[in-house]
């Protein structure tokens, strides 16, 4: 296992019903979720999920409602007990932890941001943010100072003495975010954090989170049902359907090579020039040679950034990697073709 791998999930199952273990043991794996429900009366919420999350990256789990994504992330911190499988965080198996170790994990290593914010209505903003620290047993003065610091980071200084209900939705979720960050966790889990917000506020919050992520560089697991949000936020994306993974990959991989029709359907609305990079569409260099006056681009440039350049040049452009080697070429036709989603 890679030393920088933060979270590993191996064959995680979650089955709801009166007797999940027995159902899992006798399960016919060829059956679909609906068939299993009909035959056994059990709901398979998460089906044999495996993935890994590298340190400092944002891992997005994307799926429609009922796909099991919320159940999956709750299995990570055992807010929901998985039926079987292995969840390693820093090589420690969360499933095997006793209550004390689990409490310790939740208090120090991970924290969560909720869809409907999950703010405590009886506590002021500052006390909401300080909640995690208070649970740890930190003194009042210290935790209040820390909370005020985080509050400023999310741009809400001056609101500390208000109650959550006095804040707008966007502001409430900033408090939720601040509460999660106040404990300085190694892993942040977001359960559809922005889906309860207006579209404009949602975009603002996404940008805000990207900005903060550059600042703090935490490992993040991010749940969403919005494919565009997934592409915007994620370094890697897992697409879930009926409790299973359809595909795991970078946004670019998903858009360029969707594994099945289900994934392809999501990618159809995606502005491809924002996702695809040169490396994905280039061809081996045939018509260009490396000379001083050749216009060159880098393999990881997004098409979006090249549109002006490509449209003003007549011939093919050379693609040069970081070591200065010519690795491929692109031309107008190739860019245009790549931007057609039905290709």
């Amino acid at each position: 296992m890679n030393s920088s791998t933060k979270i590993v999930c191996n064959n995680v199952w979650k089955i709801f019903g009166p007797n999940p273990e027995k159902t899992l043991a006798g399960l016919d794996h060829s059956l679909s979720r609906a068939e299993i429900l009909e035959q056994t009366g059990h709901v398979v919420a998460v089906r044999n999920m495996s993935f890994r999350v590298e340190e400092g990256e944002t891992f997005v789990v994307m799926g429609l409602s009922g796909s099991g994504k919320s159940t999956l992330v709750r299995c990570l911190s055992r807010l929901i007990e998985p039926t079987s499988g292995e969840v390693l965080i820093d090589n420690d198996d969360v499933i095997k932890m006793d209550a004390a170790a689990l409490t310790n994990l939740r208090r120090t290593k991970m924290s969560m941001v909720f869809q409907h914010f999950g703010l405590f209505p009886h506590r002021r903003v500052v006390d909401n943010i300080a909640f995690g620290l208070e649970i740890r047993g930190m003194g009042k003065k210290e935790r209040t100072d820390k909370a005020m610091e985080v509050l400023e980071m999310v741009g809400l200084s001056g609101w500390d003495q208000h109650f959550p209900r006095e804040l707008s939705g966007g502001m409430q979720q900033r408090v939720g975010l601040a509460r999660a960050m106040a404990v300085n966790p190694e892993v942040l889990i977001f359960d559809e954090p922005f889906s309860a917000l207006d579209p404009l506020i949602r975009r603002e919050m996404q940008d805000e989170l990207l900005r903060l992520q550059k600042l703090v560089k935490k490992t993040m697991v991010f749940i969403t049902h919005d494919f565009l949000e997934a592409i915007k936020m994620g370094d890697h994306i897992a697409i879930m359907k009926d409790g299973e993974t359809s595909q795991i990959g970078t946004p670019e991989e998903l858009v360029a090579e969707p594994a099945d029709d289900y994934v392809r359907e999501f990618t159809e609305d995606v502005p491809r020039y924002k996702v695809l990079s040169v490396a994905k569409i280039m061809q081996p260099p045939e018509n260009v040679t490396l000379s001083d006056n050749t216009t060159t681009v880098k393999p990881d440039d997004k098409l979006e950034a090249l549109i002006d350049l490509v449209s003003s040049s007549n011939g093919p452009l050379g693609v040069v990697d970081d070591s200065g080697e010519l690795v491929g070429e692109i031309n107008q036709a190739m860019v245009l073709k790549a931007m057609n989603s039905r290709s």
Binding site: L79, L105, R106, S111, M112, F114, H116, F120, I135, R136
Partner: peptide
């Protein structure tokens, strides 16, 4: 009390007693 509120308390590592005293009782007052 909404399940999410209780979940939020658990996710920060609050044990049963802490959840009861700091979240459930004040909210059900």
């Amino acid at each position: 009390i909404p399940a999410e509120t209780i979940e939020a308390a658990h996710s920060f590592g609050a044990n049963r007693l802490q959840t009861l005293v700091k979240v459930q009782l004040p909210l059900s007052l």
